[in-house]
Design a protein around this nucleic acid. Structure first.
Lengths: 173, 173
DNA sequence: TATTGTTATACTCTATAACTATA
DNA sequence: TATAGTTATAGAGTATAACAATA
């Protein structure tokens, strides 16, 4: 039964993690050779700085990404959002419901397929996204600045890994 | 009251996330400019491949890291482990309890400070860690191979970000 | 008074399974 | 029979707060 679920998602953006910094007098052994460990620590730092930068908003990287995707893709469906964000349908539902409760997005019937919603930004959502985009970009550029002119190569390499690191993972449902 | 907690932690390594891949006909807008988004996707891929590689063991990156730190640092304390892994004390307790239930680590009194445990590997833990290390390194090198001879620079840059990306984050407790 | 570890509890995220409506 | 979305529920991870023992 298709029916909007708009109430009682009382979750606030999960507070970041704690810092995951190198402790001076500790031996890290093989961890020092692992790209995975370095990636995890960089991700942790970036994550925490994201939350610092967006402290005025109850937002998360995922919520921000959802807003952008909704803004950029006219009447995107929840299932598409789920796939793009690596979520199960039920997770995408929660996310859209949360954004909807805040009045940032709205769902309307899809002309072609009566089972689906088309999700779009409201005026308020558009305003918020504008503010957020500025804040997030500034935060991200500050991080990019750390590696100087290698920032472009770094991003390219990370995208290469994202794309080519999975051989054949099956995901049901 | 210091007393070992060794029973009933019935959690198995949380199954990875779903793939977070680029969807062909979707517009990503500003997300394409963000290092954070690329980092998140690379992390997701690496994470999933870690689970694929270690599917024979009920392990996670964090559990593996804990084993290595325990092996490399004689009689490490839970609080040190917590700090090194970016966890609260209570989280480190859970982790050590889980490893202990499997007979991979053991806690003994710290000679210097009676409040603390010294955590160390058992013989069984040492064996498991040996196997795991081989598997994890192979997985990680496969990922590193994707970026060819830039793998070293990539790791360096990620460590730079991990270290310098946090200005002044306060963590209580 | 601060710190190590423990316990109990709560919250967030995400998934699974069963379901309705539509294709 | 498959797909979009919903609902209810459960599992895993992590945090907070209060506590005991020790420093």
């Amino acid at each position: 039964m298709k029916q909007k679920k708009d109430t009682e998602t009382n979750n606030s953006a999960s507070n970041p993690e704690r810092p995951l910094l190198r402790i001076p007098n500790l031996e890290y052994g093989v961890l020092d050779n692992l790209l995975g460990f370095a990636l995890r620590r960089a991700q942790n730092t970036l994550f925490m700085d994201f939350y610092r930068a967006t402290a005025d908003y109850d937002i998360s990287p995922q919520r921000f990404a959802a807003l952008v995707l909704i803004a950029e893709n006219k009447n995107i469906r929840q299932a598409q959002l789920a796939e793009a964000l690596g979520l199960h349908r039920s997770g995408a539902l929660r996310l859209v419901a949360w954004l909807s409760e805040r009045g940032w997005v709205e769902r309307h019937d899809d002309d072609i397929d009566a089972r689906a919603w088309g999700v779009s930004l409201t005026q308020a959502g558009s305003t918020i996204l504008g503010e957020l985009t500025k804040v997030v970009q500034e935060h991200d550029f500050n991080i990019q600045r750390i590696v100087g002119d290698r920032n472009s190569q770094l991003k390219t390499d990370l995208e290469l890994i994202a794309k080519n690191g999975l051989t054949a993972i099956n995901v049901e449902n």
